[in-house]
Amino acid sequence: GALPANLDDMKVAELKQELKLRSLPVSGTKTELIERLRAYQDQ
């Protein structure tokens, strides 16, 4: 599914939920979580 547009405004817990939905690792800082989601979306 498409990512929420406001990733930077989301809480870390919400970002981790998005990562879990995509079976991605949820470790790292908020910035790393956002980068991981964006990289996944670009595939």
Rank of each mutant, 00 (worst) to 15 (best):
K20E: 13
Q43S: 10
L37Q: 01
R36A: 08
D9S: 13
S23W: 05
Q17N: 00
A5N: 14
A5Q: 10
E18R: 02
G28M: 00
D9M: 11
K11A: 13
Q17P: 01
P4Y: 15
G28K: 00
K16L: 03
P4R: 14
K11F: 02
P25R: 04
R38K: 08
M10Y: 09
R22T: 05
V26W: 02
L19Y: 00
N6C: 02
K11L: 06
Y40C: 13
N6E: 11
L24P: 01
E35H: 05
Y40K: 08
E35I: 07
S23Q: 09
D8Q: 13
G28H: 00
K16T: 10
K20M: 11
E35W: 06
I34A: 07
L3G: 11
K11M: 05
K16G: 02
R36E: 02
I34V: 06
P25Q: 07
A5P: 00
E32L: 02
Q41P: 12
Q17E: 12
A2V: 12
E32W: 00
R38Q: 05
A2P: 10
D8V: 12
E32N: 04
K20L: 11
T31M: 09
L37D: 05
G1L: 03
Q17C: 02
N6H: 01
D42P: 12
Q41I: 10
E18G: 01
Q41V: 12
R22M: 06
K16D: 01
L19C: 09
V12F: 10
Y40D: 15
R22Y: 03
L24G: 02
E14Q: 09
K20G: 10
G1C: 01
E14S: 09
P4F: 05
P25V: 04
K11V: 09
L37G: 04
I34Y: 11
T31P: 09
Q41F: 14
E14P: 01
Q41S: 12
E18C: 06
N6Q: 06
P4N: 06
V12W: 04
L3K: 07
E32K: 06
G1A: 00
K16E: 09
R38I: 09
T31A: 12
T29N: 05
R38V: 07
S23C: 12
V26P: 14
P25H: 00
L21V: 11
K30M: 04
V26E: 13
S23A: 11
R22F: 00
L33S: 09
E35G: 11
A5I: 15
Q41A: 14
L15H: 01
S27W: 08
R22D: 04
L33T: 05
A2I: 15
Y40S: 15
E32R: 04
Q17K: 05
P25I: 15
L37N: 04
N6M: 13
S23V: 06
T29V: 05
E35A: 14
D8A: 14
S27E: 11
E14G: 07
E18A: 10
T29Q: 13
Y40A: 15
L15P: 01
D42R: 06
D42M: 10
Y40L: 09
R36M: 03
L21P: 02
L7P: 04
R36L: 03
M10S: 05
I34P: 07
G1Q: 04
T31C: 14
S23P: 00
K20R: 11
S27G: 10
E14C: 04
L37M: 07
S27Y: 08
L7G: 04
Q17T: 08
A2G: 11
V26K: 06
A5K: 12
Q43C: 10
A2W: 08
L33A: 05
Q17M: 12
L19R: 00
V12M: 14
D9L: 10
K20P: 03
R22P: 02
K16N: 03
L3P: 00
K16R: 07
I34Q: 13
K16A: 04
V12A: 10
E18S: 05
P25W: 01
R36F: 00
K11Y: 01
L24K: 03
K30P: 05
E32H: 04
R22N: 02
G1D: 02
M10L: 06
Q41H: 08
K11R: 09
D42S: 10
A5M: 15
L7T: 08
M10W: 03
G28C: 01
S23N: 11
E14L: 04
R38P: 08
R36P: 09
L3W: 08
D9G: 13
P4E: 15
V26H: 05
A5E: 14
L19K: 01
P4A: 12
S27D: 13
Q41T: 13
A39K: 15
I34E: 07
A39G: 14
I34F: 10
E18V: 07
L24A: 05
G1N: 06
Q17L: 04
L33E: 03
Y40F: 13
N6D: 07
D8H: 11
D8S: 08
E18K: 04
E32Q: 10
G28Y: 01
L21S: 09
Q41G: 15
S27R: 07
P25L: 02
P4I: 15
T29W: 01
G28S: 00
P4V: 15
R38W: 06
L15Q: 01
L19P: 01
E32T: 08
L15W: 00
L3T: 01
D9K: 15
P25Y: 05
D9T: 14
L19E: 02
P25E: 09
S27Q: 03
Q41W: 12
D42E: 13
P25A: 05
T31W: 05
L15A: 04
K20D: 09
